[in-house]
Design a protein around this nucleic acid. Structure first.
Lengths: 75, 75
DNA sequence: CACCACGTTATCATATATGATAACCGATTA
DNA sequence: TAATCGGTTATCATATATGATAACGTGGTG
């Protein structure tokens, strides 16, 4: 799998989890101390996030980091 | 959990998985197209890796990225 | 002793993630 | 119409991950 595809899948996964909690990008961004624009960029898969970024999001969404990586290579 | 602690745990986990495959840092680094010095830095938890870095390692170790994140927040 | 093999640490350059701000779009609503 | 809301995109600055190289330590082995 291309790294680009992975980024996109992670972004999509974050979006799904965020929406399932019924919160806006603005909400989630605020909890994580991100700017909403930056979260939008992340959900669009336009960056290669660090583990700390994913960690903050996982905490805010009350899931594990692994839950953000639903898409996997060796399952 | 501190982000620093997370980095250290991930580094330790990578080391354990690498050693369980019986390969050296040099080997793994070569497969991933890293310099051995950079892999050493990563295993020491002295960086905040991107998902693409973790992905390359997971592929080389034939595990999922989640397997590198054994330590979790919301389990 | 010299010589490797494995790993560590430091350093510098470069690429890029992230912070921050502004402008914009579409949909909704008053 | 104007205003708000959720989201997007572009842009620039700054922090930092990564690439790359060199020097070093330690343990084993000839």
């Amino acid at each position: 799998m291309e790294i680009n595809q992975l980024q996109i899948k992670i972004g999509e996964r974050i979006r799904v989890l965020r929406e399932s909690k019924g919160i806006t990008q603005q909400n989630l961004a605020a909890i994580c101390n991100f700017e909403k624009a930056n979260l939008s960029r992340l959900e669009a898969g336009r960056t290669n996030p660090t583990i700390s970024t994913l960690y903050k999001i996982s905490q805010a969404l009350e899931v594990s980091i692994s839950d953000l990586l639903d898409v996997e290579s060796y399952n």
